[in-house]
Amino acid sequence: MTEIHLAQQAEADELLGRSPLAALVGMLLDQQVPMEWAFSGPYTIAQRLGGDDLDAHEIAAHDPDAFAALLSAKPAVHRYPGSMAKRIQQLCRFLVDEYGGEAEAVWADAASGADLLERLLALPGFGKQKAQIFLALLGKQYGVRPRGWREAAGSYGDSGAYRSAADITGPESLAKVRAFKQEAKRATKAAKSAGN
């Protein structure tokens, strides 16, 4: 089991450390909400499904309306629980169809970083940035390091960087990642207003 601090909540982080599917679902949820909220989502879903783990087969086969209601119950798992429920089910169906429901099989035998990036890009809901961040997270915190993984992860693979979820190991690094993201937003805003 890997020690993870993405949710900043003991039970949720423990699940992320032992469940490859929970890590993938947390990464999928990591948009338009604070990172801790996204990565505590898998634990909340597991609890509401009546267990202490996530199962791709169970989620894929769940009634879509009931699953959306499960994510929408207060406190909601995401700012957009309905659309995220659909995305999580699409991801789980893909994992069932392509990997026998085993999330870890996505990276277990990847021949190289480029191969792993390609596999992550094929996952529903994973664009280039999300795939590279997850690849960096696998390499930096889960010990999944096929040849060329840092290069395939782009700048997210850089050692000593504080850019994304891949770099969060506790409250201090979370604050550094937040500061980096705020600075990046400011720079984008400044560049846009300079162009007007």
Rank of each mutant, 00 (worst) to 15 (best):
M1A: 14
M1G: 14
T2C: 05
T2N: 09
H5K: 11
A7L: 09
Q9A: 15
Q9Y: 13
E11A: 15
E11Q: 15
D13Q: 01
D13L: 03
L16G: 02
L21P: 09
A22L: 09
A23W: 05
A23Y: 03
Q31D: 09
V33G: 08
E36F: 03
W37I: 13
F39M: 06
F39I: 08
Y43K: 14
Y43C: 07
Y43T: 03
Y43H: 15
Q47P: 04
Q47W: 09
L54W: 10
L54H: 10
D55W: 05
A56V: 12
H57G: 13
H57S: 14
E58K: 11
I59T: 12
F67N: 08
L71H: 07
A76W: 14
V77N: 06
V77D: 06
P81M: 07
G82L: 01
S83R: 15
I88H: 01
I88F: 04
Q90P: 01
C92L: 03
F94W: 15
D97I: 08
G100I: 05
G100P: 07
E102F: 04
A103V: 13
E104N: 05
A105S: 13
D109P: 08
G113H: 13
E118C: 01
R119D: 02
A122L: 07
F126H: 02
G127F: 04
K130E: 01
L135H: 07
L135W: 12
A136W: 03
G139F: 10
V144S: 09
R147N: 14
W149K: 04
W149L: 04
E151G: 11
A152I: 06
A152Y: 13
A153I: 02
G154H: 05
S155L: 08
G160V: 08
G160C: 11
Y162W: 11
D167S: 11
D167R: 12
I168Y: 11
T169Y: 05
T169E: 07
T169W: 03
G170D: 07
E172G: 04
S173D: 10
L174C: 02
V177G: 01
K181C: 00
Q182T: 00
Q182G: 00
K185H: 00
R186P: 00
R186S: 00
T188M: 00
T188I: 00
K189G: 00
K189T: 00
A191F: 01
G195P: 01
N196D: 04
N196T: 12
N196G: 11
